[in-house]
C-alpha cells in the first residue's frame, strides 16, 4: 500500500509540502509521494455555487489509472461542498482509495484574522491525516483528542490532537 499526494495549484512551499508528506509517512507507515498528475477537475466545478463538488472530485480521482494499492489524496485551494451542506473541509471514500482536502476554509484570513502559517499547516496536516484515515476504513472517533474526531467548524480542528488514538492506529495498521 502507498499514498500519492496530488497537489493542484497549492500555495505551499516545497518545504511545507515535504513536512506534510513526512507526517503522513510516519502516521500511516506506508510510502508517501507527491507529484502532479494529469487530471482535469473543471467538470466538478458548480458554477451556481462557485464551489467544487467533493463527490464529483472523488469520482474523477477513482477513475485515475494508477496501481490499485495506491491511495490518492487531492489537495487544492478551492472551496468544497456536497449537496445539502454549505461547505466541507474534505471528503473521502470510506475504506476506498480517494480523498480530497481543501485549504480554503482553513485559512485564518477568511475569518478576518491575521494569517498564521503554522496554524494553517497544522490544520492541513490534521485534515489530510483525517481524510486518509477514512480511506483506511476509520469512521469518526469518540476520543476528542484523536485526529479522527469529527470537526465541522474550523476552530474545532484546533481542539483535537494531530495523532490517531491507540484504537484508530491499531485499526489502520491492520488495514494495511
Amino acid at each position: 500500500m502507498s499514498v500519492l499526494v496530488v497537489p493542484i495549484d497549492l500555495q505551499l512551499t516545497g518545504a511545507q509540502l515535504a513536512v506534510l508528506i513526512e507526517r503522513l509517512r510516519r502516521v500511516f507507515a506506508v510510502a508517501v509521494d507527491a507529484r502532479p498528475i494529469e487530471l482535469d477537475i473543471s467538470s466538478a466545478f458548480d458554477r451556481l455555487r462557485g464551489q467544487y463538488d467533493a463527490m464529483r472530485l472523488l469520482h474523477l480521482l477513482v477513475a485515475v489509472k494508477s496501481p490499485t494499492q495506491e491511495k490518492l489524496l487531492l489537495l487544492l485551494e478551492q472551496d468544497l461542498f456536497i449537496p445539502v451542506l454549505s461547505y466541507i473541509f474534505g471528503q473521502a471514500q470510506l475504506g476506498g482509495r480517494a480523498a480530497v482536502v481543501s485549504m480554503y476554509r482553513l485559512r485564518n484570513e477568511r475569518y478576518g484574522l491575521p494569517a498564521d502559517d503554522a496554524l494553517l499547516l497544522g490544520r492541513l496536516e490534521k485534515e489530510a491525516v483525517h481524510e486518509l484515515g477514512h480511506t483506511f476504513g476509520l469512521i469518526h472517533c469518540a476520543d476528542a483528542r484523536c485526529v479522527m474526531h469529527a470537526s465541522t467548524y474550523v476552530e474545532e480542528i484546533d481542539f483535537k490532537g494531530d495523532a490517531l488514538c491507540a484504537d484508530c492506529l491499531t485499526r489502520v495498521r491492520r488495514a494495511r
Binding site: 463527490m55 456536497i82 449537496p83 445539502v84 451542506l85 466541507i88 471528503q91 470510506l94 477514512h134 469512521i139 469518526h140 469529527a150
Partner: peptide, 17 residues
C-alpha cells in the same frame, strides 16, 4: 427525492458512526 442528496448525506452521516 434527489439521489445526490441521499447519497452525500448517507456518506457524511456514516462517517459519524
Amino acid at each position: 427525492d434527489e439521489y445526490a442528496v441521499r447519497d452525500s448525506l448517507y456518506k457524511w452521516l456514516s462517517m459519524d458512526g
